[in-house]
Design a protein around this nucleic acid. Sequence first.
DNA 1: AAAACATGCAACCGCGTTTCA
DNA 2: TTGAAACGCGGTTGCATGTTT
Length: 303
Amino acid sequence: MGRPPCCDKIGVKKGPWTPEEDIMLVSYIQEHGPGNWRSVPTNTGLLRCSKSCRLRWTNYLRPGIKRGNFTQQEEKMIIHLQALLGNRWAAIASYLPQRTDNDVKNYWNTHLRKKLQKGQNLDGVSSVQSVPKGQWEKRLQTDIRMAKQALSEALSLDKPSCSTDSNESTYTSNAENISWLLESWMKPTPKPVTASGGCGGADHRTNSAETVTHGSFTNGGTSSSDGETTPLRQGLDSFFSFNNSSCHSSDNVSHGSVSVEEQNASFMTPENGVVFHDETKPNSGDRVPLTLIEKWLLDDGLF
DNA sequence: AAAACATGCAACCGCGTTTCA
DNA sequence: TTGAAACGCGGTTGCATGTTT
């Protein structure tokens, strides 16, 4: 019989998301919270399959995502974790707050793998390659054993201690995306997107966080690149940048109206009380306690 | 200036796992 | 307990952009 398609292939739109679609999706999730993706297309009128909606949300629209500009430290983390965990991008990404697995995977494939293939050391800091091979393998085995053990002990207390540097001024993209979307959305008559200029499907990169600047389809003021911010954006930025310093640990405040429980923290915009759930780092079950990794990295002098 | 090639990344696909009736 | 549906993940593709010739 086989697995039926996740959604009706007929009439399902593919390809880059338009700003309008983003807005529809975000506004729906604002109301209902993420989850139950199957019902999203029908309830929103989006001509997308549920998978596509989920992906769009988790990789781009979700609050708390940082895009581009991987720091050296993040690079090293990825390299080490990849050595330890293999291509388990979701697990690796779970150690990099604000990064998605897709992002980590892409970064690995496009940058890090090549670097390592070239035997290029990462800016002189000890990296995987810098450890003599035998020693490294030995160590890897030990670490894997430790990781497995730690795994089996199943970690509930693995609240990530902000391991990434938090000076990220580059925390731009998502807050901007969302804030812009919200801004438009909250207006009685959302500014019609200049589809052709903005995206119109022609250049899907305009959807990407960096370029999104949403200036392309927005009303000037909220452009991300110029550093100018609207009050709303400022609020959201500061709000969404929650975990730059705290790793969203303190956000675990219970927001009564939230129906999606989970361990994830929630967000509420100051303006409208809308609740977002921080799915940034779903608690992956196979997560090694961060302290282990930290210790390891510390051993390597990475910190 | 234009064509060819390389690069980066958003999005899709298929399959494994989890959840739920 | 079981099977179907939903979800999540990793691999891969397609295309826009950047760089080189």
